[in-house]
């Protein structure tokens, strides 16, 4: 199985906005969606449209994959990279990347994004979290008061 796939040298990823990325096969290993597409083909080059991921998001994901696929980088360097990677993102970047990770079926990157988001909403008020996820409450004030009472232990 694996031997015949080694013929593929370069993979072209085309983002939703038409921007094009050329990457090596080991970079997309983590992207199971892309990988399964490649596995079905038997060509030297492939180009894969990704209509659900925008170019700047895809650029970030590839940057992450490159760093983590590298065997030269130490564990510490990767952790340092992760830290800086999250630091330069806004909250809606994280939510978009989480969705992209889900679409591309990238297990560890998805977990990484979910952790970053959880860290941001931890110890925050209900209002903050609603704001964060752009949630419009559909409870009446009475309903909300009732729910708070029901799970009183969690709101102390």
């Amino acid at each position: 199985m694996a031997a015949e796939k080694s013929s593929i040298k370069i993979i072209t990823l085309i983002a939703a906005d038409g921007s094009v990325f050329e990457v090596e096969p080991n970079i997309v290993k983590e992207m199971k969606t892309v990988q399964s597409y490649i596995d079905e083909l038997d060509q030297n080059t492939v180009s894969i449209p990704l209509p659900n991921v925008f170019g700047n998001d895809l650029a970030m994901i590839i940057e992450y994959c490159k760093k983590h696929a590298s065997e030269e980088e130490t564990k510490e360097a990767k952790e340092e990279f992760d830290f800086e990677f999250v630091k330069r993102m806004k909250s809606d970047d994280k939510l978009r990347l989480l969705q992209a990770a889900s679409y591309l079926n990238m297990e560890s990157f998805l977990q990484f994004m979910a952790k970053a988001i959880a860290a941001e909403i931890e110890n925050q008020s209900v209002e903050f979290v609603r704001d964060y996820f752009q949630i419009e409450s559909d409870f009446t004030p009475e309903e909300e008061a009732e729910l708070r009472k029901e799970n009183e232990w969690a709101f102390k």
Binding site: L98, A114, I121
Partner: peptide, 25 residues
């Protein structure tokens, strides 16, 4: 955001914090 992703995030929160998400919507 699909429930599966939200659920992913909730599971990373402490139990008490997770319970508080019940009144978001």
């Amino acid at each position: 955001l699909p429930n599966s992703l939200l659920f992913n995030i909730i599971s990373l929160l402490p139990f008490k914090e997770a319970a508080r998400t019940s009144i978001l919507s």
